[in-house]
């Protein structure tokens, strides 16, 4: 069964499954221990290396399990972890499991343009105002009209010394917003890249001052980015393209890495994201099989009551019109053939002498005849007329 069609074969909204979008992706860490090698960390020795790949490799390793930053001996104690997801995803949650006491301040950012620009998703700090210039999130949750980057409490250390930072995209969004109907929420959850900035280590008796017990290193084991491949409701899966890049397996007449536009011939109405109520499939232009290309005309779309705005281009088989639905000049409709028939339009074939022109009636095929001439193609003298020797007046009254 095709998830993008209902039982009757009609298009319906479909979305890829929830996955860990970071799994197997490369993580860029601004600091990783082992270069130069120390007794505890040697980047060139797999048994003592703590590379950033451990953050997204699903724990398939025989060596250490945790990434570890270099020893940081003086402020600023910032370390950045960046993971490119390869394409746009709609985020559900982001989490990072720390192997040591979690930092006291972390900023979570996202990019929607493959790392060219960044915006914050949330902050996690025991000193929101001091570290990020923001008030701590109210206990009642977000109150703004739309989603925003709020400052949440810093992740708590567990009894075993580890910790977990967990962020749900809903945490920054006021209740009641619906993904289908809220473009703002759609924008909020969309990301191509995720960045975590570990900005301040946790120290005993933390007061917010930067005087940590130095040197210090961050350590974490599992970065998860839970989300769905963004396909705007027009695909149920994402697959690697020939270049290995992840792209949506688009349906509903759409195309593009996110199914974000209509396929070339499917432009009878504007592209729209699918919703639970309406698939908003892109519709093929209606060209009666006589054209392979069409363009969208917004004016015509409005005039049609927002039903059809496609205009066929290069109508073939001697057809013409917005839908290639009538015959071009010099041709007429053969009533014995379907409009979609390649030979639906026949040449007028007006007689070169008997007809007054070359264009016939497009419905009946009747050519315009000179006086005294008759017949569909004007090739005979009418009753009471006989052929003359003049090509200008080929039929004259019989004396």
């Amino acid at each position: 069964a095709d998830p993008c069609k209902d039982d009757g074969g009609a298009p319906r909204s479909c979305v890829p499954g929830l996955v860990n979008a970071a799994l197997g992706r490369e993580v860029l860490a601004s600091s990783t221990c082992g270069r130069p090698a120390t007794r505890a960390c040697d980047a060139s020795d797999p048994r003592r290396a703590h590379p950033a790949t451990l953050l997204t490799s699903a724990g398939v390793t025989t060596g250490p399990l945790c990434w570890r930053s270099d020893l940081l001996s003086r402020a600023p104690l910032n370390v950045t972890l960046t993971v490119a997801l390869g394409k746009a995803f709609e985020l559900v949650f982001v989490s990072l499991r720390f192997c040591s006491v979690p930092p006291a301040s972390v900023a979570l950012l996202k990019s929607q343009d493959h790392g060219r620009s960044w915006v914050p998703l949330g902050f996690f700090s025991s000193h929101c105002r001091q570290d990020y210039g923001r008030l701590p999130v109210p206990t009642t949750g977000p109150v703004g009209p739309g989603p925003e980057a709020l400052c949440f409490p810093a992740p708590q250390a567990q009894p075993d010394g580890s910790g977990l930072l967990a962020f749900s995209v809903q945490d920054g969004s006021p209740p009641g917003l619906d993904l289908d109907s809220s473009p703002v929420l759609q924008d909020w959850v969309t990301a191509t890249d995720i960045r975590m900035m570990l900005t301040r280590p946790s120290v005993p008796g933390d007061t917010g001052a930067s005087a940590a017990t130095l040197p210090y290193s961050y350590s974490a084991a599992e970065l998860q980015v839970g989300g769905r491949c963004k396909c705007n409701g027009h695909a149920s899966q994402c697959l690697p393209d020939p270049q290995g890049r992840l792209v949506c397996d688009c349906r509903h007449g759409t195309e593009g890495s996110d199914c974000g536009r209509c396929k070339p011939f499917y432009c009878d109405r504007p592209w729209q994201r699918a919703t639970a109520q309406e698939a908003h499939a892109c519709l093929a232009c209606s060209c009666n099989g006589h054209a392979r290309r069409c363009r969208f005309n917004m004016e015509l779309y409005r005039l049609s009551g927002r039903r059809s705005g496609g205009v066929c281009l290069n109508c073939r088989h001697n057809t013409a019109g917005r839908h290639c639905h009538y015959c071009r000049e010099g041709f007429y409709r053969d009533p014995g053939r379907a409009l979609s028939d390649r030979r639906a339009c026949r040449a007028c074939d007006c007689h070169p002498v008997g007809a007054a022109g070359k264009t016939c009636n497009q419905t009946t095929g009747q050519c315009p005849c000179k006086d005294g001439v008759t017949g569909l193609t004007c090739n005979r003298c009418a009753p009471g007329f006989q052929q003359s020797r003049s090509p200008v007046a080929p039929c004259v009254k019989t004396p």
């Binding site: 002498v353 008997g354 090739n379 052929q387 003049s390 090509p391």
Partner: peptide
């Protein structure tokens, strides 16, 4: 009544060379 089609050979093209070229 079946009317014969116009016989092109019967026309006098002397003054209508242009027309004949079209034909």
């Amino acid at each position: 009544e079946v009317m014969p089609t116009l016989d092109m050979t019967l026309f006098d093209w002397t003054d209508y060379e242009d027309l004949k070229l079209e034909v």
